[in-house]
Computed example of a mutant assay.
Amino acid sequence: MKKIVISALCLILVGGGIWYYVYNGPMQKKAGEKAIEQYMTAQNVNLQDVTMLRSGVNFLSGVYIESYVINADSENEYVYSYSRNSGKPYDVNLLVMKDGSEQTDAMYPKLEKEN
Rank of each mutant, 00 (worst) to 15 (best):
76 N>G: 03
107 M>I: 08
114 E>F: 02
97 M>Y: 01
64 Y>I: 11
18 I>D: 05
60 L>W: 11
42 A>H: 05
32 G>S: 05
34 K>M: 14
16 G>T: 01
18 I>C: 12
83 S>D: 14
13 L>K: 05
93 N>L: 12
81 S>N: 04
28 Q>S: 09
23 Y>F: 08
81 S>R: 06
32 G>W: 03
100 G>K: 09
6 I>S: 04
86 S>Q: 13
28 Q>F: 06
31 A>E: 09
10 C>Q: 01
1 M>W: 14
87 G>Y: 00
7 S>C: 13
20 Y>F: 15
51 T>I: 06
90 Y>N: 04
37 E>T: 06
113 K>Y: 00
15 G>T: 00
81 S>A: 08
70 I>L: 11
10 C>W: 03
100 G>Q: 05
34 K>N: 13
36 I>W: 05
104 T>Q: 12
80 Y>A: 08
6 I>T: 04
111 L>W: 05
27 M>D: 02
41 T>P: 07
87 G>V: 04
26 P>L: 15
101 S>V: 12
47 L>E: 10
8 A>I: 10
43 Q>K: 08
106 A>R: 00
43 Q>M: 13
25 G>F: 03
40 M>K: 05
63 V>R: 11
96 V>M: 01
2 K>T: 14
15 G>F: 10
36 I>D: 03
65 I>T: 14
53 L>P: 00
94 L>Y: 01
17 G>R: 05
1 M>D: 13
61 S>T: 15
17 G>I: 10
79 V>R: 09
34 K>A: 13
13 L>W: 00
106 A>P: 11
66 E>C: 09
29 K>V: 07
50 V>Q: 07
106 A>K: 00
15 G>S: 12
35 A>Q: 06
50 V>R: 08
94 L>C: 01
32 G>M: 07
10 C>S: 13
107 M>T: 08
23 Y>D: 15
67 S>K: 10
41 T>D: 14
97 M>L: 15
67 S>R: 15
39 Y>C: 06
54 R>I: 03
99 D>R: 02
45 V>F: 03
81 S>L: 12
42 A>P: 00
19 W>H: 14
13 L>Q: 08
21 Y>N: 14
